[in-house]
Design a protein around this nucleic acid. Sequence first.
DNA 1: GACTGACGTTCAAAATAATGAACAACTTGC
DNA 2: GCAAGTTGTTCATTATTTTGAACGTCAGTC
Lengths: 269, 269
Amino acid sequence: MEAPAVRYSGAVQQDLQDFQPVKSAGRTLDVLEVLADEPRSWTLVELARALDIPKSSLHGLMRTLTARGWVRADETGTRFRLGMRALRVGAAYLDGDDSVAVISAVLDELSRRLGETVHLGRIDGNQIVYLAKRDSTHRLRLYSSVGRRLPAHATALGKALLAQHTDGDVDRMLAWPLERLTPGTVTERGDLHRALAAVRDAGYAVDREENAEGIMCFAMAVPLTDPATDAVSVSVPTSRMSADVERRIVAALTDLIRPLGQARSMLSA
Amino acid sequence: MEAPAVRYSGAVQQDLQDFQPVKSAGRTLDVLEVLADEPRSWTLVELARALDIPKSSLHGLMRTLTARGWVRADETGTRFRLGMRALRVGAAYLDGDDSVAVISAVLDELSRRLGETVHLGRIDGNQIVYLAKRDSTHRLRLYSSVGRRLPAHATALGKALLAQHTDGDVDRMLAWPLERLTPGTVTERGDLHRALAAVRDAGYAVDREENAEGIMCFAMAVPLTDPATDAVSVSVPTSRMSADVERRIVAALTDLIRPLGQARSMLSA
DNA sequence: GACTGACGTTCAAAATAATGAACAACTTGC
DNA sequence: GCAAGTTGTTCATTATTTTGAACGTCAGTC
């Protein structure tokens, strides 16, 4: 029997095999996730339909969630959205993360040195989650990106992280066919493999208007873990782009990100 | 029979009376809240003790939570922290909130005009939750405040919102005795009542190093609801403080916050 | 103004989860 | 290197929840 890439010492770790989730716990998360994915007012019946749960079952759940402040009901008590407790866990996730703390200073310095928008992203399955952001102009609202997700294949952050894996692993990690966000999005398997080879070669990843038109990004994986799960990116409007700007960005990323490899031991978790 | 302050049309709204929460749903939230309140690694037994749940019961719950990405187990599978899904609901709470969207432009303008740190806060029980922030210098990390909580009585935001209620209501809303955060924190009931009267008189609230030494805040309730639940504050280091700075801050708050009263109809929820 | 349709609520039977005791695996101390 | 203590896991029994059908309530329609 082949050993898995990472061994578990036999603790609370579902072995991919059969495993019976606690039904009402799973449904609790289902409700929160649906409310998060579509941040609008939902009625009980809408939720019941979306989740394929009998409305009578959902009724008790919603009472529990609203009583606890995780879900907020409007004055009539018939429409639901996320409640304030939901905000807290999000902030706490970031607070408790050692990597975020270590990389935070790097983001500050990058932002100061380049004056462009800087992101810290983490890969989660086939998506990139934005964990932190610095923006000199403050034009964009901070909550506009932290917590948000984009398909990994369409972002510099994602490509920087995917490049750590073999083509075969990448094929398994992503959801095919690849979603197209702009005309520039790489959606062909061969094109993506070539792009990732280029990333391995250069040591950083580039996104040329592949998820948003008018924006280019440069990203480098953060070598705090192996394989890396976090990456840092710098975003620039194409209007401001030039070979010189690219050189400066890559130099800053190299200067600041590469030394983090030495700090790996700090993350004993 | 006396009607409650707010009438419910008989929907999912726990009537304060008896009501049986769904046990495993409540425990799911318990786990997330403990992990959020103490963002460190927890073992199963630690959690079981903290929540007074048999470890065998918790075991299944944790498997469900980790399988869903709301909790992350370390490589050994024996230590737990919040997972990435937790981040998403936090961001989504803010996205889905109409008040935050409306007030966001005001924060941008205040930040531009004053060049000082600006916060949007919401009252939750006896606490103020920070919903958004603008900081010109970017010295402080953004996630250092969004989602964070402080006792209402010790903040300008909190006093601006508490001042909307009668002294009797305030007494019921707060947790007595009041927590002291700095030597300047108002903890005496009479002092607080006098402070709130001053807020009603002036139309804005002041915090003079009452939650952090060296920082003063000025806050005004946002009249989008009645009573208001949100307030906006401007924070200034005492070193930079002067009568003129105070005048400019109060003028800016008055200019930008007061007109929002007309936008109240926008929030039909 | 009664009818129609949609939604939220309640209830008793059927399905599911919680429990504590026992076991296994790891860590610690001597 | 062994024993004691701690932690994670499993299992049958008990307690709880889920479910579908029935009822109440509301808004809109003819």
